[in-house]
Amino acid sequence: QGAQVAFGDMQQSTDAPVEVSADELRVNQSDGTAVYTGNVVIGQGDMRLSAPRVTVVYVEGQGRIERLEARGGVTLVSGEEAAEAEEADYDINGGSIVMRGDVLLTQGGNALMAESMTVDLNAGTAQMSGRVRTVIDQGSNADGAN
């Protein structure tokens, strides 16, 4: 059973340039794979996805990026929403971010937990699925709301 929530502001343009900053970028000269490591922050509009390690996956053949795979514990921030998970895949052209592994979404005082969450940057919505639990008040224990 999934939950649909608003995520980020609506005018998120997925045509905006994507900026990546990191301590290191390593490009393998045999197969061309590119890996960012160390305080990697991916930004587009006011969305910020940060992780210790991000691998660039290209569209077969052409020089375009198909997706960025963030690993090692990721944090996604957009507007006042923030989400944490173990890993995230950012499909730049599709304008979507899939987060997996102990996803924790916090919106103001409200927190939602799930196994995975798909954020649609164009529509500004997020679809959570897998044991979705709502934590109304940070202090009280989590009651299973299925």
């Binding site: 997925t14 990546v20 290191e24 490009v27 000269q29 052209n93």
Partner: peptide, 27 residues
């Protein structure tokens, strides 16, 4: 640019503050 990491494959390594801008061509 030097062989590095597992398999000693040649890598092009950018360090000391990498700032990248990617223009999505979907438009």
């Amino acid at each position: 640019v030097l062989p590095s990491g597992p398999g000693d494959e040649v890598q092009m390594i950018f360090t000391e503050g990498v700032e990248m801008v990617y223009e999505p061509q979907n438009s």
